[in-house]
Amino acid sequence: MAIGLLLIAAAAGMSGWNIYEDRQAGVSADELLKVYVESVEETQERTTAEENQPVKADEPEKETEVLTEETGESQDTEQTEESEDHSVRYSGENLYGVLSVPTLNLVLPVQKDWSYPKLRQTPCRYYGSVEDENLVVCAHNYSSHFGKLKNLRIGDAITFSDEAGENHTYTVACVEVLQPTAVEELTQSEWDLSLVTCTKGGKTRFVVRCEEEKE
């Protein structure tokens, strides 16, 4: 009888721990979301301040200028290519962007790299990027993270705001269940965005595949 009670207590303890972990994950996500929002606002304020400063005249970006003898007019012979600045513009934890799923009432920050400790806080970027149109985001099946993913329907909208605050809109195209070893199938696909979490019991992986809406 005592052993029976002990086992019941262990089950209750485990259940309680799962509920606690779920709630903590929700709190961590909210805190990190605040940091992201503050940082984006700060970046936007800085950008507005820079735009309001007097503008200096820019010289045209050309590698070579060929002038004619008589008219002195220039003809381009080559255009300079400038590389873009993809550096992170905000401080705070390792944030990659914010995922928003209106039909599930979910707004979650996504961390740039994944590890098991990080997954306990927020969804994490597992593979790819927004720019390369092959982003894979994984998260625990907590109710505050990806636990409700199974309720998504084809055609539902999902928004991802990247580091610079730029919004990318996706549409759910299909869902599938993969084996845990199907890493290549998960990452080497043509889908612009994939959301992945464990099914109940953790034996397989539930994947939502999305296409980006191009303007």
């Binding site: 779920d22 997954l119 994984c138 890493v183 992945v196």
Partner: peptide, 10 residues
């Protein structure tokens, strides 16, 4: 080698 284990142990 495996897609991360993201399920709670239930």
């Amino acid at each position: 080698q495996k897609i991360p284990q993201t399920g709670q142990i239930t």
